[in-house]
Design a protein around this nucleic acid. Structure first.
Lengths: 268, 268
DNA sequence: TGCTCCTGTTCCATTATTCGGAACTCGATT
DNA sequence: AATCGAGTTCCGAATAATGGAACAGGAGCA
């Protein structure tokens, strides 16, 4: 009812997307009855909705009658990714940053109440290589998340922080709104954010903000490394490199897109 | 009108997906008027449909009023990819194959009238690294495409071939249905497929088929290399390695999924 | 300034689609 | 054979999509 409440009014599409989310985020493949139970909707309705999603290739159904996310999603995302101007502009700078530091480099943007990774450059092919792209991570305990918040107007940042679930991941995770706001203020002053094992034990990073052309979108670049390779000395050395890369990406973004354009996504 | 014609009857969803496809495959960002013109639908309708897609995050609109694919697509695809059983089962074998050959290894499945790449392992980080995942490639001139066809019942393969657009990419591309059927027969006999610069000049590959548990899905694994590193001798050495990897993936697929299950996507 | 054109947005009666309860089919189990 | 549970189909009632027309508002021009 309040204008700020997230009452999605996307009609039929909204219902179908809720269903698609349900299936695609389920830990285990779901059968018809599972879905029926979890939605609470009537049989006929759910059946027809799933049928439509199947026919469009957004879902698939194997011999076991379980529903799984469909390949159409991969195709759509492939287009989304390769045509993303922000990612394309940033790519060479990520490579450069990787070459300078030798560590893993990430590019991410703020979206809704999470950070979405748009790109990644790493030295060694890891098994989780592609899985990071498109993955949503928490804002309050990632370098990119905190850096991105610092690029927004304080008002906007405050509003977003108020909606976050400041879940604890490690014993250094910031779980208090006030402390987080202070941290963001510090980051805004210094131009870079640290993540000292706040999300994952043994993993540290330095990140710097990238401002969107509008005032409602933001992202960041980061250099991540295992704690034993990322002491305070290393973080201090990488910080200006990361800041520089972020600044140049911001610059090119502004130049390429002009004052009336934006390549970053709208913040929710 | 005819029952066999591919008249999608997915109601509202179908219309929205057509719109989403239009935007996401467009070479350049589209403005409202461009979309209006290309669809021919009335203004009010298109406007509301786009509004719904925006609100769901499937599309985004920047300051320039241009519509672009949204980050939601990346998130959905990320889930689809990481939960894909077929990909997960194949992953270690791809690594193994890469270790044995030192060249780029692909995993793909047949979907509709194209090959969708599900995974990739390569030695050197290339700029186009992620862009391949989810990308659709032609069937008739790729190793995986031809191998996958050979894993289907001849009848099914014939039907699919009949629907393909045998576009010429290089001077070795097979552009004749009969020749392609013969090629598939040979591949079925030998257990592996070659791509001798049929898709891209200077690129050759060996692929082997992976059969889905049902009789309507199929995929393949391939080793790809630049022509100067992939002479007939090398291809001959790699062929049994690729066949072996494919066979073991097929085996585990059958074992893990059982006789009544399938992790591969339904063929169109 | 005042005018026009082009673009994007909003409104609302009509129309087509979705909804959802109930009946139906089919296998597996007892 | 009967029962149960899972998946599928059907059709009147309820709801959402449609699309024509009116509304805003900015850029270019006289």
């Amino acid at each position: 009812m309040t204008p700020t409440s997230t009452t999605r009014d996307t009609g039929t599409l909204g219902k179908l997307m809720r269903l698609l989310d349900l299936v695609s985020t389920a830990e285990e493949p779901l059968r018809f009855s599972d879905i029926l139970q979890r939605t609470g909707e009537p049989r006929g309705t759910v059946h027809r909705q799933l049928g439509h999603l199947l026919e469009e290739g957004l879902l698939e159904q194997g011999r076991d009658l379980c529903y799984r996310p469909g390949l159409r999603l991969l195709m759509l995302a492939s287009n989304a990714w390769s045509r993303n101007e922000f990612r394309a502009i940033a790519a060479p700078y990520l490579q450069e940053l990787h070459a300078a530091t030798g560590e893993t480099v990430h590019l991410g943007v703020l979206s809704g109440n999470g950070v979405i990774y748009l790109d990644k450059v790493e030295s060694r092919q890891s098994v989780r290589m592609h899985s990071q792209i498109g993955r949503a991570s928490p804002v309050h305990c990632t370098g990119i998340g905190k850096a991105a918040l610092s690029a927004l107007p304080p008002e906007t940042a405050r509003e977003i922080i108020a909606t976050l679930d400041l879940k604890r991941f490690t014993d250094t995770t910031i779980t208090d709104q006030d402390l987080l706001r202070q941290e963001i203020a510090t980051i805004r002053r210094e131009g870079h954010a640290f993540d000292r094992e706040e999300h994952e034990a043994g993993i540290r990073c330095v990140a710097a903000p990238i401002a969107g052309a509008d005032q409602v979108s933001a992202g960041g670049v980061s250099v991540t490394a295992p704690a034993f390779r990322a002491g305070e000395a290393e973080l201090a050395v990488w910080a200006p490199l990361v800041r520089d890369a972020a600044a140049r990406i911001s610059g090119e973004l502004a130049a390429r897109l002009g004052p009336r354009r934006s390549g970053l996504s709208e913040a929710h």
